[in-house]
Design a protein around this nucleic acid. Sequence first.
DNA 1: AGTAGGTGCTTTACGAGTAAAACACCTGCT
DNA 2: AGCAGGTGTTTTACTCGTAAAGCACCTACT
Lengths: 180, 180
Amino acid sequence: MTASSGAGVPGATRSDTVATVVRQWEAVHPDLDTGPMEIIGRVNRCAALLQQAEDAPLRRAGLSRPEFDLLGALRRTGHELTPGDLARETFSSGAAVTKRVKALTERGLVERRGDTRDRRVAHLRLTDAGRDLVDGLLPEQLAYETSVLSGMDPAEQDGLAVLLSALLGRLEGRLGAPRP
Amino acid sequence: MTASSGAGVPGATRSDTVATVVRQWEAVHPDLDTGPMEIIGRVNRCAALLQQAEDAPLRRAGLSRPEFDLLGALRRTGHELTPGDLARETFSSGAAVTKRVKALTERGLVERRGDTRDRRVAHLRLTDAGRDLVDGLLPEQLAYETSVLSGMDPAEQDGLAVLLSALLGRLEGRLGAPRP
DNA sequence: AGTAGGTGCTTTACGAGTAAAACACCTGCT
DNA sequence: AGCAGGTGTTTTACTCGTAAAGCACCTACT
């Protein structure tokens, strides 16, 4: 009665790994509504496969994905960011940002400048080399993403983007400040 | 011209973090087609938030998510699995499985039995305590997932499941055996 | 002015995953 | 039978992220 997708969707959406996992759970726990798994299991699995695939070109450039995210944040915002800004922007802990920034400055991709007013804070920006690296990598990433999505027609792509946005909106609203 | 979702979708899908990130990239690189980001960025972000949220009840039970995945694989298949099977089933490395199995057997959740034919392989199964733990946790997980999705009506949920399945099918087909 | 409390960042200690090597065992060829 | 090569699992050395403590600095109250 939980109004989920238990409905049926007759023979659709066969042949992905999540479908077989869901069927296994249904066999073992016929009483539970496995509808949500059809969505959330697939989101998780898609994300895992996408990251694995997209990491390859980055590693070729000697970057981890979190490092690329950090450089990307600096590039796309267009202005300097503090470590704290970067932590929020890349959804990672402050400590992780500290270490990544250290590694990236040593490699000459990022520069730091102390704030004159508040001597606790640092301002970070890309060096020319850092900017060039991001600008070289980004088209590669997008080309791969485009090729993955090329199997879906544009209407499906838009539909997927809209539905995911709805889901994400809900997640971000609900999880903005959870109780640990 | 790459037939992506660049079309427009006028004012739709505002107010999630991915939308603002995409707008930033568009401002810096107006030449690139950022359509794929609208999908793939959201998949990644949704997965990150979902995992973070779903980890909480697991940690309360003293389990990490990979550990729960391992126990879940044993539960849903209903029969014994070898470490290799588990590695494939949970998409993790053999070494990681070895360590997790060790920890879980020490906690009395998993039992191992040597193969009589081939003495290299072990067969693993849940203890009663392991089975009970999974069976107690699973409804919690599903209830949370149901509540997250409760904002979407059933038709949207089905649509999302179908579209994600199409994407996942493509990813699994393409990435079954990549070249490192 | 002096100080208590908060903020921004970094350091430390540790846990967890990985890749590569090591190990133990099986299989098929001669 | 004996051994070369393959497979299933574990071990080792290392990397990376995290939580919690630590440090330096700012701010606002008395």
